[in-house]
Amino acid sequence: MEKRFVIYGLAGLCMEVVWNGFWSLMKGDINIVGQTSLWMFPIYGLAVLLELVHNSIRDLPTFVRGGVYTLLIFTIEFISGWIFRNIIGVSPWDYGEIPFAVYGLIRLDYAPAWFIAGLLFEKLHDQLISMKNRID
């Protein structure tokens, strides 16, 4: 489980850098600068908790599974953002007054991205389990 926490953390950091780089290009930055905060590593690592959910909902339709992941990711993002801001005193992200932002902690317009990310997580989870079974 610890190894998968690290893998999910690193995969999330990479995903965020690519996402931010893509949006910088869309804004006209041909340098395609993507960035993240190392504070995000443990948050992405928490995807290890989604493994239990994945195993429980594996046989449900794709739309339902993606919706479940979206809600769980929003919940984790909101709670961790609140903890970072109000307890630790840092803000790795702040959506401020952006439309569809909830207390600056989550963006509801990111629902499609989290939907897809959740389904990609399933593929990564299955690959990691498959690799583990081949090694054992």
Rank of each mutant, 00 (worst) to 15 (best):
H54W: 13
R107E: 12
V53R: 11
I43A: 13
M40G: 08
F63V: 15
G9F: 02
Y69F: 10
I106Q: 02
W23P: 01
R65G: 08
P42L: 10
S80M: 02
S80A: 09
A117N: 06
E16Q: 07
V6A: 13
E122D: 10
D94F: 09
I73S: 01
G9P: 02
G104M: 02
D94K: 03
G66C: 00
K123S: 14
V17K: 07
I73F: 05
G118F: 02
V102N: 07
E122C: 05
Y44R: 03
I7E: 06
I83L: 08
T75L: 13
E97C: 03
K123W: 15
S56K: 14
F78A: 11
G45T: 10
G45A: 11
D59V: 10
Y44T: 03
L13I: 14
Y95H: 06
V53D: 06
S37D: 12
L60R: 14
K27E: 15
E51D: 14
Q35A: 14
P92C: 06
A111F: 10
L71H: 07
V48P: 01
I76D: 12
V18H: 01
H54Q: 11
G118I: 04
E122P: 00
W23S: 04
P61V: 07
S80G: 00
P92I: 09
A47N: 14
F63W: 14
I76C: 09
I30R: 15
V68F: 10
F63T: 10
D94R: 01
N55L: 14
S91P: 07
A113F: 14
V33H: 11
F121N: 07
C14T: 12
C14G: 15
G21R: 10
H54N: 10
L120N: 11
L60T: 01
L25G: 11
D29N: 06
D59W: 13
M15A: 15
P112D: 04
L49K: 07
Y44G: 06
I88W: 04
R58I: 13
M26Y: 11
F84G: 04
F22E: 05
K123P: 05
E97W: 03
L25I: 07
